[in-house]
Design a protein around this nucleic acid. Structure first.
Lengths: 144, 144
DNA sequence: TTTTGTGCAAACGTTTTGCAATTAT
DNA sequence: ATAATTGCAAAACGTTTGCACAAAA
């Protein structure tokens, strides 16, 4: 699962990493929001609670979570920033390259291809990036 | 389909864009290699044939092809460079975040979720990014 | 001929590095 | 106590911009 705030902090602790207030706040944001945030959006939001927070700590924590497979790195959504997904359950994302938002697709047809991919390729998998991109309904009306 | 060199150049022409030798060479590389190249690797390779080629033209052409949906932007593979895929048929990619290579997964189970995603979300889709990342067999032995 | 594309150089923004002060364990 | 983490500043990197020249249509 790993999609909750507690799951993320537990993962960090079990990996021998220290639980600082900054990391806990970052994990809470990742676990409780479904906004697929970027490093900068996390920084801006957590910064209001912890004014001393630096961007470097956000990058540091995100890298740790991605390296542990607890968070997926979805990549850019038209902006040039990496969007992260605290929900590592198999699912599809859609990104609007105009307003740079990413949503989950309410579709049950998605199966867990993790085992299949690992078996076929011999890779030791860490995460997935299943994302379709285009223009959301709102942006189709305005810009296009 | 759009996975051949001719398909890509035809797409550019039909969109009203001019067919310069540089663009043709870039399309040939994208269509005929299965290496999921980055802007820079395309530049380095095509540059040997067209020494006057600039990176800007590569970025320019890639952006046009992505905007036309003829090429998929897969995102980073552990390096911080965007990898592109000239093959837009539904398939799975695996990226090694250690050696930064991306391969296709020989799996037939992948269905075309494009229509499903478009119907469920109302998005006008342009491309897809279906990629699993981790460590390839070779890199598991060496670094890990 | 006219509009589009090219290539250079400089700018941009995101992310990474090195190091002293701080803090979780 | 002690080793890891933080935060600052500065740099690095891939990518984007503005403009004069060249080339496709």
């Amino acid at each position: 699962m790993n999609s909750t705030s507690e799951g993320l902090t537990t993962t960090l602790k079990q990996a021998g990493l220290r639980l600082t207030p900054q990391r806990i706040a970052i994990c809470r944001l990742l676990g409780e929001s479904h906004t697929h945030p970027t490093a900068d959006s996390i920084y801006l939001e957590v910064h209001t609670q912890y004014p001393s927070l630096s961007r470097m700590t956000v990058y540091n924590t995100l890298r740790a979570l991605v390296d542990l497979g607890a968070v997926n790195a979805l990549g850019s959504a038209g902006d040039d920033a990496i969007h992260y997904d605290g929900n590592t359950d198999p699912h599809i994302n859609v990104a609007c390259i105009s307003c740079h938002r990413i949503e989950d697709v309410p579709a049950r047809q998605v199966v867990d291809l993790n085992a299949l991919v690992a078996r076929e390729t011999g890779f030791k998998l860490l995460g997935a990036r299943v994302l379709y991109y285009g223009f959301c309904p709102a942006c189709q009306k305005s810009t296009h």
